[in-house]
Design a protein around this nucleic acid. Sequence first.
DNA 1: GACCAGGCACATC
DNA 2: GATGTGCATGGT
Length: 218
Amino acid sequence: MYRELLKSFGPQHWWPVSHHARNPSQARLEIAVGAVLTQNTSWKNVERAIAAMFAAGLMDAAKLRAMPEGNLAEVIRPAGTFRVKAKRLKAFMEYLWAHRGGRLDGLGAGELAAVREELLTVHGIGPETADAILLYAVGRPTFVVDAYARRVLRRHGWIPTKATYGEIQRLFHQALPQEPQVYNECHALLVELGKRHCRTRARCAGCPLENLPHDERA
DNA sequence: GACCAGGCACATC
DNA sequence: GATGTGCATGGT
């Protein structure tokens, strides 16, 4: 699947970082913020919210931490569910100060499973958001299972409907070389596939995956 | 006007 | 543990 997608679409160069980011540290913050903002939301709307944050000088961990939640909510309004997300971003900043000295780069070291568990204790950070931050902000080898990945695997009968996040992630970890660059590319390609091709059927005209094995039992 | 988008927390059973 | 619901903008 990965090979077919790469052949069809080419490298996706993810995570998409805006031209506003001044340095690697700010880019990491933008990625982590984007991971929260994109929860159940189109990327287009997230881009607007991110641009508004830069315009307000809020793509800065200290400024973000100091900003009242209600004011932050108004800035990120275009992202949708903005009150919820303002609360989550604030919670994330509090975690950064309490456990990481206000910096993200420490997430790049230490035992991956332990760091991941730590992130999962933060309000508003679930498995997908944690994995997106770990993979894209600090380059850790953990696969991001999103709605697209789940849908594609389900359509091909490769997972049962009730498969959990962890079970699906395990499939990717077993099937792919355990390297962040590969997980990065594969996840991005799946999103591209989801955007370009049918949402309703397993097989549709021109789909790069139409010749892959299809398990009808699952 | 319905439906969807790169989830998650929370209530209820 | 499984299922249901609120959150909310902007595009199709």
